[in-house]
Design a protein around this nucleic acid. Structure first.
Lengths: 134, 134
DNA sequence: CTTGACTCTAGACCTGGATCAAAGGTCTAG
DNA sequence: CTAGACCTTTGATCCAGGTCTAGAGTCAAG
């Protein structure tokens, strides 16, 4: 399979595949005599693994780590679960943070009549106590 | 007030202030004979405005926009409220997205025994198995 | 054989939001 | 007066995660 075929199958740009290879997320593939990269199904699976992990919010750095762990057939499982739990905690924290911001913003919006003097606008008031020149 | 004094009062780096000025978020301040920037209270307020808006998740681009709107003391209020509502909707969307990812990840974790063969690990399986794809 | 699609490489460039460096000029306390 | 903190500018660098370019070579179809 050429790089283009893999790219189409997984739905990822060719450049991205080469980038992952440079970054050590994908092994160096075999090459044809011409120098073209030649991929097998395993590469497609690994690329999908990377994409799914990315969708779960893992960074490429973390994915590199996950890949190493999953290669360790015995001890990998425990460590992978741990990483997943850490990831979950991070997501929860991010959600909590966003929720706080969200609620604050909503309060301001609810209190804003949407017209009249800027002095009555709690959004502007919250942002500044009186702003001026530009 | 020198740039350093403003930076200390607002709790922001000097470089950041100059950066905001370059980016059109802060007006060009008066200069002393020496060329030093000279700030007044208005600048401190505007800088705080920027910081608060940033904490609410507005991008610098959006803040530039907010500043222009809030300068229009009459018609600005309505537009500002609208921007705030759009921002709220964007945050809600992001929270929903994160929550989806979160729940998916939690299911995988709950189903993983945390030991044994990697073939039994639903986390690794979910990452590797072929189901969908665009 | 030629065309056009594909691939190769190295390296430059992009976004956002800063942050730092270099080389110099200014200001202030002692 | 001098040390050292502070300020000036332009331009580079950083992070992540790619994206794009140029110029060259390769492959499959007609």
């Amino acid at each position: 399979m050429t790089i283009g075929a893999v790219a189409r199958r997984v739905g990822v740009a060719i450049d991205t595949i080469r980038y992952y290879e440079r970054e050590g997320l994908l092994p160096e593939p075999l090459r044809r005599a011409s120098g073209y990269r030649s991929y097998d199904e395993g590469a497609v699976r690994q690329l999908r693994f990377i994409r799914r992990a990315k969708d779960l919010g893992f960074t490429l750095e973390e994915i590199r780590d996950l890949l190493a762990l999953s290669a360790d057939r015995q001890r990998g499982v425990k460590a992978v679960k741990k990483r997943a739990e850490e990831r979950l905690a991070a997501i929860d924290e991010r959600i909590a943070e966003l929720t706080r911001v969200r609620d604050g913003l909503e309060q301001l919006i609810d209190a804003c009549p949407g017209h009249g003097s800027p002095d009555q606008c709690p959004i502007l008031k919250a942002l500044t106590d009186q702003e001026d020149e530009a």
